[in-house]
Nucleic acid binder design. Structure first.
Lengths: 162, 162
DNA sequence: GATGACTAAATGCACCTGCATGGAATAGTC
DNA sequence: GACTATTCCATGCAGGTGCATTTAGTCATC
């Protein structure tokens, strides 16, 4: 039969859902108020800007961002519509393509990071000592799927997985 | 100027976003595969079934579930469409109404809890000792908004805040 | 008891998401 | 080379969500 979770586990589950929602909403609201697009845009721009050549295959972006295929496709649409990225043909594989970040895209990413980092500090950093943040990471990591790839946080820039 | 978050805080932020998404998706998938509706339905049914009279004002439900007004309104629509709840007139305040859980609603809530609790155990309980779950709760609680009401978990049933 | 401020709930609209499918190119197999 | 399976990406459709507004009833004050 199905074993029941302890009340402690259940409480942790509830907190995890509740607190994440709250914190994410707060950060998204801060960004929105500052006139910026959603976090997903930032994540995509960050991944693109990190790529050595400034361009990535949609499939790669998809894997980096842990997003479904159609979601990635439409996110790229929006970035392209706003002139933040451009689609380029892929000569190696004609069914594929490259997505390249534009100068405007790079600028937006940098500007967003300044607001984004402030929001993280406000809603997370200021409420937790570094030691506690590390403890929290450790506990959360244990909940991660077995397939947990270690993503290098990269100095000065962070990206959630939405 | 805006202070920057420590790399520890940023790492915690990323984990929080990533792990919550993963765990929530996993639990929702389990429920879906078992043929159940989304978690939000469960939450609503649970709140209703907990009410002494089995009925609640939409506004109250809204506050309990920390959901926007329109979202609550439409969630009730769906429950009513499926015969899990019924709208009843409110005589005290004619612009308002009561939402009452039906027998079918109570049954579904119970059946869902069996699948839901199994999912919590599988994706949370089994990965964390009770002591660690308590530590995790403590850390997460510190991130909660100042306006954190202590929700009694109630033996045998848990509800996230989506 | 009229007026204006407020609260409860619903809804039109735009957008976003998931799911399933489609078209196009490639890879594998014989 | 023909055939099938697979990969890459786009998209139609149904449903969910946020935002702003509307409708209806209540309350307060005069």
């Amino acid at each position: 039969m199905k074993r029941k979770p302890s009340t402690e586990a259940t409480a942790a589950w509830i907190r995890l859902m509740r607190v994440q929602t709250r914190v994410l909403d707060a950060v998204e609201q801060d960004l929105k108020k500052a006139g910026f697009p959603p976090l997903a845009w930032y994540d995509a721009l960050l991944e693109l800007s990190r790529a050595p050549t400034g361009e990535l295959r949609p499939v790669e972006l998809e894997r980096q961002m842990l997003l479904p295929q159609y979601s990635t496709s439409r996110l790229i649409d929006r970035l392209v519509d706003e002139g933040l990225a451009a689609r380029r043909e892929c000569k190696m594989d004609k069914r594929g393509q490259f997505v390249e970040i534009t100068e405007a895209g790079r600028e937006l990413q940098k500007k967003m990071w300044s607001a984004y980092s402030a929001a993280i500090e406000k809603h997370v950093g200021s409420k937790l000592s570094d030691a506690d943040a590390i403890k929290l990471c450790g506990l959360l990591d244990r909940l991660g799927c077995s397939c947990s790839e270690a993503q290098s946080p990269a100095i000065g820039e962070g990206a959630p997985a939405r």
